[in-house]
């Protein structure tokens, strides 16, 4: 088991390194004359040259990259070109907001998808048909349209929730709940649709396995076999889909944060993008890649716990 964890950890670090290297190269090579872009068309050639030197962009790309990397591993991602704020503090101060939505949505996705998926698989008949039909729609309709629909219905018309804003959990639990509920639901619907389909399929598969009959022949009740044995075996493929959905949820959060005016990473990303604030964009790419790597690692560990054969891989 230890070797398994180590291998997964190592491959995560490699992935993170490759993504940040690629991103750095593309951002700094693709950026063209960055100083000119920051200063605008009116700036003189001298001030542009001065700015270029100031930002260290006159050095060879590789030197710049090694410099960035050596600071990045200590957690220093430089400063924003526009606000002068440290990139690391700009990200960490908003990270909690985004994480609370994304993790909330992931947890809700997992729980609801398992309940619906198992229900559809075990009950069959019309329940199954309805679940499948609704999942197709949930999957098809873009998440931000669902978010817009939720805002219009529950915040603007029914006034059950506040349409915008964010209250940190540390400040007020009810306030937090009132502000994150709609964004989490908006994000989770697409995820639930995808994962529930997978859970349903894997449970239907697992229910037909021979060991189900054998375990039941030993006096185990249907529910016990379903919730202990079938679910554990169906868990593997479902977790794999959940990992994919998590990446989608992170992306969806960017848009959903904008709709609900939540001050998370999404807002930082949109602002940094429209300004061309490359150090900030770079920091965001690394932060999001790191989240994906961590979640994948967790899911791999869960897979290993669920299925002993995975540990050998």
């Amino acid at each position: 088991m230890f070797g398994f964890i180590l291998r997964r950890l190592l491959s995560g670090v490699v992935l993170l390194f490759v993504i940040s290297t690629l991103a750095y190269m593309l951002l700094y090579v693709g950026g063209g004359n960055i100083a000119r872009r920051i200063l605008g068309q009116q700036a003189t050639a001298e001030t542009v040259a001065q700015k270029t030197t100031e930002l260290g962009l006159d050095r060879p790309l590789l030197v710049q990259y090694i410099d960035w990397l050596s600071h990045a591993v200590t957690g220093d991602f430089g400063t924003s070109w526009f606000t002068g704020e440290m990139v690391s503090s700009g990200i960490t101060s908003r990270l909690g907001v985004t994480l609370s939505i994304v993790i909330g949505a992931t947890v809700i996705t997992a729980i609801v998808a398992v309940i619906i998926g198992v229900w559809a698989a075990v009950r069959g008949g019309w329940v199954d048909k309805v679940v499948q039909g609704v999942s197709i729609l949930g999957f098809a309709i873009p998440g931000f349209l669902i978010a817009l629909g939720l805002v219009t219905l529950f915040a603007l018309n029914l006034k059950w929730f506040k349409p915008t804003g964010y209250v940190p959990l540390t400040e007020s639990a009810t306030g937090w709940l009132a502000t994150v509920t709609l964004p989490i639901i908006a994000l989770a619907i697409g995820g639930i649709a995808g994962v529930a389909q997978q859970v349903r399929g894997s449970v239907v598969d697992a229910l037909q396995r021979d060991y189900v009959r054998t375990l039941r022949s030993r006096g185990l009740s249907f529910n016990r076999v379903v919730f202990k044995h079938v679910l554990r075996n169906a868990g593997g493929p479902a977790l794999a889909v959940l990992a994919v959905q998590f990446v989608g949820l992170l992306g969806g959060a960017v848009i959903v944060e904008r709709i609900f005016a939540i001050p998370g990473l999404g807002q930082v990303a949109v602002t940094a993008t429209s300004q061309g604030d490359i150090p900030m964009v770079m920091g965001l790419v690394v932060a999001i890649a790191a989240m994906v790597v961590i979640i994948n690692l967790l899911i791999d560990l869960l897979q290993g716990w669920l299925n002993p054969k995975v540990r050998l891989a």
Partner: peptide
């Protein structure tokens, strides 16, 4: 696998920042 590891919207935002 690498392409699937990043949220598309984040990559598109990064590309938008420079392009």
């Amino acid at each position: 696998g690498l392409l699937m590891a990043m949220p598309a919207i984040v990559v598109l935002l990064a590309a938008r920042a420079v392009l």
